[in-house]
Amino acid sequence: MNKKIKLMSHLVAGYPTDDLAFTAAKALVDGGADILEVQLPFSDPSADGPAIQSACTKVLSRGYKTKDGLAFIEKLHKNFPNVKIYIMSYGSLIYTPGINEFCKKASTAGVTGMIIPDLPFDFDEGLTKACEDNGMINIPVAAPSMSRERLLKMANAGFPYIYAALRTGITGTDTKIDSDTLEFLKSVSSGGSKIYGGFGISTGEQSKALCDYVEGVVAGSVFVRLITENQNDSDKLYEAVKAKAQELTGQI
């Protein structure tokens, strides 16, 4: 068997239904995912491509609330206690109730990390401290569009983990792993932070090309698309998502 690649897999809470979202999560865990990155649906997801935007819109049209997303996370944590759960969402959703209050609720539900792409690492409205106070970590997002000076400032700011978005633009379209990508990852990790690398990762080939340079590979839109394609058959959904997770972790 090949060396297992660490995988952070993304899914949208409540998509397409609560039951099918749980089926997808189980498939991801059974397929070898180490971390579940759960997106709380948001009405203006600026970094997300069409697959995730459509999923968020569908869930929100049911009147889905943040409390529903946290209840879903709590269920995941109870069923898969050894799998890390990170929340991915946007600033206004966690700022509105109060960042410390939100972090307290997230931690209670079983969350250990927060990924909020639109909160800059050095002007994060107190997110890093609120995470620390509640036993979690804040994982800032680095992008190739950042100036080298700013990138190195983030790299040396003492974050345990940094999420490296492997290209500019929206997620969900194909990402080429080339020498520029590896140079970018080298810069992001230069201060000692462990790196999660993602944005447009959908094949085992990409995953293998990345795995020696990152702590974990991140994949999202590929799973959301599989969930969408198989939403009328829970067994097929489970098998498709599980097989893709196995492919991305290098097990098949």
Rank of each mutant, 00 (worst) to 15 (best):
Leu93Asn: 11
Lys67Ala: 14
Leu60Asn: 05
Asp68Asn: 14
Thr23Trp: 05
Gly32Ala: 07
Asp122Met: 07
Ala24Gly: 14
Ala47Val: 08
Ser107Lys: 01
Ile94Gly: 07
Phe80Asn: 03
Leu28Val: 01
Lys105Met: 11
Ser43Met: 04
Gln39Ile: 06
Ser92Asn: 15
Pro117Gln: 11
His77Asp: 04
Asp122Arg: 09
Ala24Asp: 10
Pro140Ala: 06
Gly98Glu: 07
Ala27Cys: 04
Tyr90His: 01
Thr57Cys: 03
Lys67Phe: 08
Lys84Val: 00
Asp48Asn: 13
Ile137Gly: 01
Gly63Met: 04
Asn100Ala: 06
Gly113Ser: 10
Lys105Ile: 00
Phe102Gln: 05
Met114Leu: 12
Leu28Met: 13
Ile139Asn: 07
Leu36Tyr: 12
Pro41Glu: 08
Ser107Gln: 00
Phe102Gly: 03
Leu40Gln: 08
Tyr90Ser: 00
Thr108Asn: 11
Pro81Lys: 08
Leu119Ile: 13
Leu119Asn: 10
Ala106Met: 05
Ile116His: 10
Asp68Leu: 05
Asp133Gln: 08
Gln39Pro: 01
Pro97Lys: 13
Phe123Glu: 15
Asp44Phe: 11
Phe102Pro: 01
Tyr86His: 10
Ala106His: 07
Lys67Trp: 05
Ile52Gln: 07
Lys129Trp: 01
Ala71Leu: 13
Pro120Met: 12
Ile35Asn: 06
Ala47Glu: 02
Glu74Ser: 15
Val29Cys: 06
Gln53Ser: 15
Ser107Asp: 01
Gln39His: 13
Asp133Val: 03
Lys58Pro: 01
Phe22Cys: 04
Asp133Ala: 09
Ser107Pro: 03
Gly126Cys: 04
Pro117Phe: 13
Ala71Glu: 12
Ser107Arg: 01
Leu60Val: 09
Ser107Thr: 02
Leu119Glu: 09
Ile94Trp: 11
Pro120Lys: 11
Thr112Asp: 08
Lys84Ile: 00
Ala143Tyr: 07
Lys104Ile: 02
Tyr95Phe: 15
Ser107Glu: 02
Thr108Pro: 00
Tyr90Lys: 00
Phe72Gly: 03
Ala33Glu: 02
Asp44Leu: 10
Ile137Arg: 08
Ala33Asp: 03
Gly32Cys: 07
Gln53Lys: 15
Ser92Lys: 11
Ile115Thr: 08
